[in-house]
């Protein structure tokens, strides 16, 4: 058997769900040998069980609050369905759960009656993970902020994540779930205090959040609609390279045409820039030259 063929066969076998109808162990003898103590199928099973334990743990560890929203048994089904749809395509396990919030948004049946809240909780938890180890740039100091002109090239802190959620009152529950899991030790779900987050605890209502890092610790901060709009506009477009301030402002004014007059929007813009500068979110973008 050639190397590529063998690797495709074995990885295909490992990815077979544990509760599948046709366990690949039955045919492992086609490429694996028996040992004195174990048959080929039992040898494959050691790897298959360990594959599923590893990937389930990795995702579960990222979403302790989501587990509390959907409930333990259903969460197990959610994990398996997600992992079958999105096996790892990255060299690092850190990225394994990246696609979960969007996947859950499209697969309501795995979240039960709390689906919308579950999607919001998942978005918030993923934002925490991204913010935790994203890059951090030197923020503009007060003097540099005072000198900003229309052509200044700006970008926002790479560890800042902006979220528009449809449920309120989830932030504190998310934080509490993370704290509980942390103090319970490394095995996700191992600890006590697995309190379900009940339906009554979550309310509908637009909520804007910024998730960011201060001295290595990730925090959230609520924003009003105006500030969220400004920051989104500044972050949009050529955000990676940093766009000019005037481009960001234009994006903001265009995207929020229906909300209030120009004066009100300009006021919101000034307030947001002041707050962003104070929180160290404004950084110099790459210059074009």
């Amino acid at each position: 058997m050639m190397l590529l063929e063998l690797q495709r066969r074995m990885l295909g076998d490992l990815l077979e769900p544990l509760e599948g109808k046709q366990p690949p162990e039955a045919r492992a003898g086609e490429y694996m040998t028996d040992s004195a103590r174990l048959e080929a199928g039992e040898r494959l099973a050691i790897y298959r069980r360990s594959y599923w334990a590893r990937v389930r743990d990795a995702v579960a560890e990222d979403y302790p609050a989501l587990r509390r929203v959907v409930g333990g048994p259903r969460f197990g089904e959610l994990l398996d369905a997600y992992l079958q749809a999105h096996p790892s395509r990255s060299w690092t396990l850190r990225n394994l759960s990246r696609a979960l919030p969007e996947w859950l948004a499209a697969h309501a049946q795995f979240a039960g009656r709390n689906w919308r809240a579950a999607v919001d909780v998942a978005r918030l938890e993923w934002a925490y993970i991204e913010s935790f180890d994203a890059a951090s740039l030197a923020p503009l100091d007060a003097e540099a902020v005072a000198r900003l002109g229309p052509e200044s090239r700006l970008r926002l802190q790479p560890h800042l994540r902006l979220l528009a959620l449809e449920s309120s009152h989830i932030e504190e529950r998310v934080l509490a779930a993370h704290r509980e899991d942390l103090s319970a030790g490394p095995k996700p779900g191992a600890g006590a205090g697995q309190g379900r987050i009940g339906r009554g605890e979550i309310r509908r209502g637009r909520r804007y959040l910024a998730v960011h890092r201060v001295a290595g610790v990730v925090y959230y901060r609520s924003l009003d609609a105006g500030m969220f709009g400004v920051l989104r506009a500044l972050q949009g477009g050529e955000m990676e390279e940093g766009g000019t301030l005037v481009e960001g402002v234009e994006r903001f004014l265009q995207s929020n045409r229906q909300q209030g007059g120009v004066e009100a929007r300009m006021e919101s813009l000034r307030e947001t820039l002041a707050l962003a500068a104070q929180l160290g979110w404004l950084c110099m973008g790459e210059s074009l030259s």
Partner: peptide, 17 residues
């Protein structure tokens, strides 16, 4: 060892032939 094929990763140290 090996651990991935066609860009899909097992995150395990799999034995080689």
């Amino acid at each position: 060892c090996w651990g991935s094929v066609d860009g899909t990763y097992s995150h395990d140290l799999l034995p080689l032939p």
